[in-house]
Design a binder for these strands. Structure first.
Lengths: 342, 342
DNA sequence: CTGAAAGCGCTTACAG
DNA sequence: CTGAAAGCGCTTACAG
């Protein structure tokens, strides 16, 4: 119930240690030109008084030591693995990550990025942003930026980290063909807008490439789901009840594949006998094991660590862009395995 | 490739509108004592120049318009429903929510809260914090605070919002008894430390109360799982393979209940015939429908909206604490339904 | 109603 | 090596 204690500032420390505020500031930043004796005196006072630098004030002149993390879907179970990697990569750097949720619409995402810049954040990592490349580029000119899961191989204003989504799709299709599927459909998600080069678009491109040899027109073989689970479920049911229903399904995410399991079970279709299913992300390594969902493994942790490192080096001054691409790996499980020779 | 554009500040706007910086500041904050004419002139300039206030600078004197959200588990599918509510409750208030992840250890959580205070955040909402009440109280004296999922009915330094966890546990046990279970076990989670009054502890208390009439010593009927899924799975297997395995299982969360489904399926136990299972949170309303998991419904959205409102009113000056408690509701599904008369 | 000035807690040239 | 002073972009009494 006592009023807020008066904050310990650089000035309090300076008085206690009997030095100038400039000296304290230098010790704080490990700046050059402070004697060992002074450093010790100041550090002792900081310790004693429990001094903590005031980030807002630091931000006015120098850095805030804050990194903004932008994401759009708290419900996507793949994303936490990315964040684990980011946290790990930032550990010990002195930069505090803070997460903003864009909620999947472009205006909200723009507002959020502006909010982060206004708060003087030192760098931004965006995970699967909805914004098109040009918009991101504008922001990237204001603040060091690294993008995860958004392909921009020729961009030089910011860095990117990705898994090769085209490759993943090609591998999945090849596997389904090998398993004897003749009517393969991709369960994709509606793109927020045409120009966006996100991972889903890339997977569609890879799918179309790999489907080249089949009779069907590739574009007929792609079905676009929605952002909300209920509408997507309806769509899946319609697809599975069609007379010419697919015998092989390539799902853009394990989340959607799970919905396919549910719908198939309720309709009475067997997996993999009636429909072979391949998911993406390898999310449910353990949890859904009885399902045995085949999936493309692409550890988010790797993305996160790489993104954090790229961002830190950019904050430290690097200006040429870097674009990392890792390769996903198909993990075959029961949901797509029809032959026994694997 | 042009250098960062010079930032538009309050001063730029003042010059453009030909007024003082003080005037601009007043317009910005909708402060009293500005003529209509001046307000319009200033707003026109702000619009024209694309002015956005600099939060770090504002924070040095007034507010940063930033709310810190603290949570510990990005993987818990219940939490996003809480955040949805918080976002909704904050909408239009001008306060920007930013999320920090404590990663389940007390030192990290403390560091995170300090980081938020150092960044001059105007208020904090903590979801299921690991810290004991006294520590939270210390922070709450520095910054308006609202706690979700942490019972502190007598606390007056901060507000709380909860569902009645004791009640939920009692209802679950009564239901299992009604279904003919004689050997009921609670699958709980290890408490981070003794003094913490979190939702799990409350559920254990409710469980023990409701078990009072049974022969078994209640404390024997509580099994403590771990934070990592793998260890918990081992524990569940051991439990299900015991000669005197339970015929009724009350799980502290739906996540754990899902693991029970997996283990039971692999061991060859039928649900609900061999074991009736009740979960908590009603997380998988749709996704796991074939499982038909009975669960306690406690919409996180309600918690979030209420917390946001309490925090805003506290920021506006309220000083007496408020403690909201909602009631959970048991949703009975196939996993616990042995008789047909419901 | 309007504005000049001090100050929030830091950092950064710049003297000494 | 050390420190006085200006300044970052705002807000807040306080005069006019």
């Amino acid at each position: 119930m006592t009023g807020r204690a008066k904050r310990v500032t650089i000035r309090t420390v300076a008085e206690d240690a009997d030095v100038s505020v400039a000296a304290v500031s230098k010790v704080l930043r490990n700046s050059y030109g402070v004697s060992e004796r002074m450093r010790e005196k100041v550090q002792a006072s900081m310790q004693k008084l429990g001094y903590r630098p005031h980030s807002a004030a630091r931000g006015l002149r120098g850095k805030t030591f804050t990194i903004g993390l932008l994401q759009n879907d708290l419900r996507n179970p793949y994303l936490p693995t990315i964040f684990d990697g980011i946290f790990k990569g930032l550990e010990g750097s002195g930069f505090q990550p803070l997460l903003g949720v864009g909620q999947s619409t472009e205006p909200l995402e723009t507002a959020l990025i502006n909010a982060m810049i206004d708060r003087q954040m030192d760098g931004l990592i965006m995970v699967a942003p909805r914004l098109p490349g040009e918009k991101i580029e504008q922001f990237a000119r204001e603040v060091p930026t690294c993008i995860i899961a958004h392909h921009h191989p020729d961009e030089d204003a910011f860095d990117t980290v990705n898994f090769d989504d085209k490759l993943g799709a090609r591998v999945a299709v090849r596997h389904l063909i090998e398993q004897g599927c003749h009517n393969i459909v991709m369960l994709s998600q509606a793109l927020p807008e045409p120009g966006v080069s996100n991972v889903i678009q890339q997977r569609e491109l890879g799918f179309i490439e790999a489907m080249g040899g089949l009779n069907k027109r590739p574009s007929d073989a792609i079905v676009h789901g929605f952002f909300d689970a209920a509408s997507t479920e309806t769509l899946i049911r319609e697809l599975l009840l069609k007379p010419d229903r697919p015998d092989g399904l390539f799902c853009w995410s394990d989340m959607v594949a799970t919905q396919v399991f549910v719908a198939a079970a309720e309709i009475g279709l067997r997996i993999p006998e009636d429909i072979a299913v391949v998911g993406y992300d390898n999310t449910y390594d353990d949890q859904l094991r009885p399902f045995g969902l085949s999936s493309l493994n692409q550890p988010g942790y790797k993305l996160g660590v790489a993104a954090a490192q790229l961002l830190l080096s950019r904050i430290e001054g690097r200006s040429e862009a870097e674009h990392k691409v890792f390769s996903p790996e198909l993990i075959v499980r029961g949901s797509s395995l029809r032959s026994d020779d694997t």
